[in-house]
Simulated assay, not measured.
Amino acid sequence: MLGPRIPALHRAYRRREPTEPDVRDLLLRVARAAGTPAYYSTCRDGRIAVVESTGPPAADGDPFEAGTEPHAHATAHGKVLLAALSRPARRRYLAEHGLPRFTEHTITDPDRLEAELGLVRRLGLAVSVGEYDPDWMCLAVPLPPAGGGPARALSVSLPTAHRAARGRIGDVLTRAARQFG
């Protein structure tokens, strides 16, 4: 039975995808400043994953939990990490996972996604409003690479009803990423 094994599997995953000790502090600072859960995600060997989160699993229906992220095109942290990949690596990821539609706002056109990822690279901020779940939005920024390590993202999620806080939370994320690097 898988249920009781989930905590042990997660611990094994975290040993394979370790986070630096100061990442947890960064997440807690961002969660306090933003008033919403914060996440640390990476892309390694073509796998995108949420590695660490400040929120308890499935808190208030929050759709972003620690684990592999097969729907990166529909999340802000996924967009940051897809934008960091080379075009061939990004194409491999998308060929494997596709661009499934989750809501009417999900980007499913490859050219439109490429344009969005170009904007993410220019602005240093990704936003997903109701693309994966109509009730949630996600904002993310890239974190500076750690000594040639994998691409990394810092993100938060909040109900779409709180979209007015988008500018303030984007500033919180940008400042936190700058101070972290």
Results as ranks from 00 to 15, higher is better:
5 R>N: 13
5 R>G: 09
7 P>K: 01
9 L>K: 08
12 A>N: 08
14 R>C: 13
14 R>Q: 15
15 R>Q: 09
17 E>M: 15
18 P>C: 09
19 T>G: 10
22 D>V: 11
23 V>A: 09
27 L>Q: 07
27 L>E: 07
27 L>M: 09
31 A>Q: 12
31 A>M: 11
34 A>G: 11
36 T>A: 15
37 P>R: 04
38 A>V: 10
41 S>Y: 07
45 D>I: 06
45 D>V: 07
45 D>W: 09
48 I>L: 11
54 T>S: 14
57 P>G: 09
62 D>G: 06
64 F>Q: 11
64 F>V: 15
66 A>Q: 11
67 G>Y: 04
68 T>A: 13
69 E>L: 04
70 P>K: 02
75 T>A: 03
76 A>Q: 01
76 A>R: 02
79 K>G: 04
79 K>T: 02
83 A>W: 01
86 S>A: 13
86 S>I: 03
87 R>T: 10
92 R>A: 15
99 L>R: 04
102 F>C: 03
103 T>Y: 01
111 D>R: 05
112 R>H: 10
113 L>W: 05
114 E>G: 06
116 E>N: 11
118 G>K: 09
122 R>A: 14
122 R>W: 07
134 P>A: 08
135 D>I: 08
135 D>N: 13
138 C>D: 00
139 L>M: 06
143 L>G: 06
